[in-house]
Amino acid sequence: MNNSADNHWYPVAMCSGIDDPRETQLLGRKISLGGTSGNFWVRDSEGRDLPVIEKYGHLWTSPGKPNRDLFDIPEADDVGRRLVDVGSVRVKCSPLRAVENFLDIAHFPFVHTDILGAEPHTEVERYDVKIHEDVDEIWATKVKFFQPQAAKSAGGGIITDYKYRVAAPTCAVLYKTSPPRPGEWDVITLFVQPLTEELCEVWPWMALYDDDAEMADLVSFQQMIFMQDRSILENQIPRKLPLDPGLEAPTQADLTSVAYRRWLKKIGYSYGAQVVAA
């Protein structure tokens, strides 16, 4: 299996937002893209066509030869879910730091205060983390956390259940209790486009059960949450994610992060990673 960063799928645009051909970057190289739904194209700097996939509201490409299809999110096809294009936010950080932060709950009381968490409800109880070798994904399950306002549709504080899934090196999916439908999971994703090793375009996307909220409120809520993270992500030292243990100090609450770093190392994904401890 070839695991170089080239051979993965990456989001490069929101399908609904491609008005004119444009240039962007992927893994440090210029690419161009354009077209209309069903006819999108992406080209490298020498004009060669790159493969394209139109899925989950976004246009995906790969500069290499992906050895598997884009990961599946079956919930995206559920009847009754609202699919929310959140748009992109650019962040001066490693794409891997962005994903790792998305997998983290312990920061909620301090970074998303009174929204996703609040003191004194800071405890992270033990949860399960598993690397699924067959599909090459990481799953964290049985994650619970007290949230003062878990989503736009949540009226007050509740214990929210979560599942986290690393579906690709720069893409993660979280499943959380849907406040209007406690038996169902809302799906919130973080698709990260690595522009360079220390700069990324982050494309959150959601598939929610929420019939009442205005679309603008749903988008605003998610942008607010992600922008609260941005000032953290731009101030971590080193900027690249250290894969070797020793430089940073994980605890039990960081099991997902530990598994993520171990998995990146195992599959040889080093773009945005600091492989040798400084």
Binding site: V86, M215, S220
Partner: peptide, 9 residues
């Protein structure tokens, strides 16, 4: 709330 980005509402 307006969807300023990405919708330019």
């Amino acid at each position: 709330a307006l969807n300023f980005h990405p919708e330019k509402a």
